[in-house]
Amino acid sequence: MNAPSSSYRSGFACFVGRPNAGKSTLTNALVGTKVAITSDRPQTTRHTVRGIVHRPDAQLVLVDTPGLHKPRTLLGERLNDLVRTTWAEVDVIGFCLPADQKIGPGDKFIAKEIAGIKKTPKVAIVTKTDLVDSKRLAEQLIAIQQLGVELGFEWAEIIPVSAVGDQAVGRSPSNKGGGGRGAGQVELVADLLTKLLPEGDQLYPEGDLTDEPEQIMVAELIREAALEGVRDELPHSLAVVVEEMLPREGRPADRPLLDIHANVYIERQSQKAIVIGAKGSRLKHVGTTARKHIEALLGTPVYLDLHVKVAKDWQRDPKQLRKLGF
């Protein structure tokens, strides 16, 4: 775990931004595998997931935070506290701003907050560039640069990126250092974040992709599968707890099986039918989808046992929040 050379860099970078700004998708693209759940619903990230990017000259540890938002529940307040604590402890802050949405009050609120963290370099990452044309992208880059000017700080970099398909666009023309369409955008993000890290030894062993406990990762994969295609009100009401993960006894060494028992919690009895579906069809689909991702993550066959339970108004109940890991 010693540094390969004297110029080796290592440190922590966090992605911040409004809910659904592309932070988790970018984290997964940089790490090269799924370490953070993604969804087309805002506020799906509930934990700060560390994804580890290994490079010959550096180790970049990515901290993916929940989106900062106006809290309506005790859960929302706790998620916001988690975001602010993370900002204060990292070496670089990456502010994700979607290219297809104009800078709004939520973005300005976050920009004002990070402007107060004086010594930490701030990188603007313009996500979802595949959704806009070059004119709209140019307008967004100028607006982002102006946002920094208004708040009295200079962006260390402004980087346009599409984590989907890793199309090459390059750096903002308004930035020093030029651009170029040669390298993939995701690789460019890694390059530019790495340059802003302090010199130091490796923080994690070669091959580690996250320091998130396996049980938390498995719970997040189940929750991601359960969020697919459900009604708007359900995502914030849904939590997953893995009660048990044990190798099946009596299995031959060349045919292992991991038994996973998990509970899916919702807030109201009426939501139970949404999660389970007609004759259990939806829950079966959730189990099949989640099992594939879990087997890919853990590298072993899995038997997944899911149960749906009601924890009334758990987002507002301190005792239940603790029980569900918040």
Results as ranks from 00 to 15, higher is better:
residue 170 G to Y: 11
residue 69 H to S: 09
residue 126 V to W: 12
residue 95 F to H: 14
residue 79 L to T: 03
residue 89 E to F: 00
residue 162 S to A: 06
residue 70 K to Q: 10
residue 144 I to E: 08
residue 112 K to Q: 14
residue 100 D to M: 01
residue 131 L to V: 07
residue 47 H to F: 11
residue 125 I to N: 14
residue 94 G to Y: 10
residue 55 R to W: 06
residue 61 V to G: 01
residue 86 T to Q: 12
residue 53 V to A: 04
residue 116 G to D: 13
residue 75 L to A: 12
residue 102 K to C: 07
residue 107 D to N: 08
residue 78 R to Y: 06
residue 79 L to Y: 01
residue 121 P to E: 12
residue 153 F to W: 09
residue 61 V to P: 02
residue 76 G to E: 00
residue 41 R to H: 12
residue 97 L to I: 15
residue 70 K to Y: 03
residue 42 P to Q: 01
residue 103 I to V: 15
residue 150 E to L: 08
residue 128 K to T: 02
residue 43 Q to T: 07
residue 158 I to K: 08
residue 66 P to E: 00
residue 167 Q to T: 15
residue 47 H to I: 11
residue 79 L to W: 00
residue 70 K to C: 06
residue 50 R to D: 09
residue 158 I to R: 07
residue 89 E to T: 14
residue 57 D to T: 12
residue 42 P to A: 01
residue 127 T to F: 13
residue 43 Q to K: 05
residue 153 F to A: 03
residue 112 K to E: 15
residue 163 A to M: 01
residue 140 Q to M: 04
residue 123 V to L: 11
residue 166 D to M: 02
residue 49 V to M: 09
residue 88 A to S: 14
residue 94 G to C: 15
residue 137 L to C: 02
residue 46 R to C: 08
residue 157 E to I: 00
residue 93 I to G: 06
residue 68 L to H: 01
residue 99 A to S: 13
residue 131 L to R: 14
residue 156 A to N: 10
residue 46 R to F: 06
residue 137 L to Y: 08
residue 115 A to S: 14
residue 49 V to R: 11
residue 163 A to T: 02
residue 77 E to K: 07
residue 88 A to N: 12
residue 159 I to K: 08
residue 111 A to R: 03
residue 43 Q to M: 05
residue 139 E to W: 05
residue 129 T to D: 10
residue 106 G to P: 10
residue 135 K to G: 11
residue 128 K to D: 13
residue 123 V to G: 13
residue 42 P to N: 02
residue 46 R to Y: 05
residue 93 I to P: 02
residue 121 P to L: 03
residue 74 L to W: 06
residue 120 T to I: 15
residue 158 I to S: 11
residue 85 T to L: 11
residue 137 L to F: 03
residue 54 H to W: 03
residue 150 E to S: 09
residue 64 D to N: 07
residue 44 T to E: 08
residue 89 E to A: 14
residue 76 G to A: 03
residue 155 W to S: 00
residue 131 L to I: 09
residue 115 A to H: 01
residue 114 I to H: 03
residue 115 A to W: 03
residue 158 I to E: 11
